[in-house]
Computed example of a mutant assay.
Amino acid sequence: MSKVLIVAEHLDGKLNPSTARAVSAAVALKPEAVDVLVLSHDADAIAAEAAKITGVSRVLTVVRPENAHPLAATLAPQIAKAAAGYSHVFAPSTTFGKDVLPRVAALLGVAQVSDVMSVEGPHTFKRPIYAGNAIITVEAPASQTVVATIRTASWPASGNGDASASIESLTVDVALPAHTRFVELQQGKSDRPDLQSASKVVSGGRGVGSKENFDVIFKLADKIGAAVGASRAAVDAGYVPSDLQVGQTGKIIAPELYVAIGISGAIQHLTGIKDAGTIVAINRDAEAPIFEVADFGLVGDLFKLIPELEQAIG
Rank of each mutant, 00 (worst) to 15 (best):
R151N: 08
Q112G: 07
I217N: 03
L244R: 12
T145K: 05
T278M: 09
A83T: 04
M1N: 13
G207R: 00
D115Q: 10
T74C: 01
V202P: 09
T61F: 01
A20V: 03
S154R: 11
V59S: 06
V172I: 11
H10S: 15
S154W: 06
V116S: 08
S57T: 12
R58S: 08
F125G: 04
A221M: 06
D236L: 03
A234K: 00
S242P: 05
S114Y: 03
D275Q: 13
V174P: 00
P128D: 04
V174N: 10
T180L: 12
R284C: 07
G229T: 06
A20Q: 06
A84S: 13
L305H: 09
T152Y: 03
S164K: 13
K251R: 11
L195S: 01
F296W: 14
G297M: 08
S2M: 13
V299Q: 08
A227F: 02
Q112I: 13
S164A: 15
V174G: 06
V183A: 11
A142H: 07
E49T: 11
T149D: 03
L71R: 11
A48D: 13
T61Y: 00
I279H: 09
L298F: 15
V240P: 00
V299N: 08
V228I: 10
V89E: 01
R103D: 08
K304P: 06
A50Q: 05
A105C: 05
E256P: 03
L170T: 12
A281T: 00
S118L: 14
V104R: 09
T95A: 01
V104E: 08
I53E: 02
I267E: 15
S118P: 00
S114C: 09
T19W: 15
S2L: 12
K81Q: 14
V100K: 04
A221K: 04
V147L: 06
P177S: 10
I290S: 01
T149F: 08
D191R: 11
A237Q: 06
A157G: 14
K81S: 12
I253L: 00
F218P: 09
I136G: 06
I253W: 01
D215K: 14
P156V: 03
E49Q: 15
K189P: 05
Y258I: 05
G262A: 10
R21I: 01
Q196R: 09
P17V: 01
V280M: 09
F90N: 04
S2A: 15
V201C: 01
L244C: 10
T171C: 06
E184Q: 14
I252L: 10
T124S: 15
G277F: 06
T145M: 04
K30S: 15
A140W: 04
N283M: 05
D301C: 10
L309P: 02
D222P: 05
A91V: 03
P177K: 10
L298P: 08
A8W: 05
T180N: 10
L15T: 07
K14P: 01
V172H: 11
D222Q: 07
D285G: 12
I261P: 00
A131H: 11
L75W: 12
K211M: 04
I167C: 06
P255Q: 12
R181M: 10
V201W: 00
G204C: 03
